[in-house]
């Protein structure tokens, strides 16, 4: 959307940043949902829908920059905090093989204790449907 205050060059820069963010987010979905086509497609269509609704925000406005920031935050969570797990040992088994990749966030043990109570364990979210 054309801006009242920004020069065409600034608007172009902002558009470039948004496109770059969109690309970054799509790449993050590709990393987080590798070999999981239904989830990958769902994530991408969600990303697309969100970008589409934010399309009419004014270039350079607060809302627009918040939307971009939000998208980058989502991408960061997808990259660092989403781990795919595959049940091993048949149905009802408590064993999951996790695909922890290069960008998965790994902290020290004492740091993970700080988040205690604010995070859910895997056992709690295992059966949830996204």
């Amino acid at each position: 959307m054309a801006s009242k205050y920004l020069s065409p060059a600034d608007v172009a820069t902002n558009k470039f940043a948004v496109r770059a963010t969109y690309r970054y987010l799509l790449r993050a979905t590709g990393l987080a949902f590798q070999n999981d086509k239904p989830t990958l497609l769902a994530a991408r269509s969600q990303a697309r829908a969100s970008f589409k609704t934010a399309r009419n925000l004014e270039s350079g406005g607060t809302e627009a920059s918040q939307a971009v920031e939000h998208a980058q935050g989502v991408a960061k969570i997808l990259r660092e905090h989403v781990v795919q797990g595959k049940q091993v040992g048949g149905a009802g088994s408590e064993k999951y093989k996790l695909r922890i990749h290069e960008e998965t966030q790994r902290l020290d043990n004492d740091q993970t204790k700080l988040g205690k109570g604010t995070v859910k364990s895997f056992r709690e979210i295992k059966d949830s449907v996204f």
């Binding site: 690309r23 799509l26 590709g30 991408r44 970008f51 589409k52």
Partner: peptide, 13 residues
């Protein structure tokens, strides 16, 4: 523009 990003992503993949 979003479609174009997606197409280029598809080409990358």
């Amino acid at each position: 523009s979003l479609d174009t990003v997606e197409v280029v992503m598809a080409i990358e993949e």
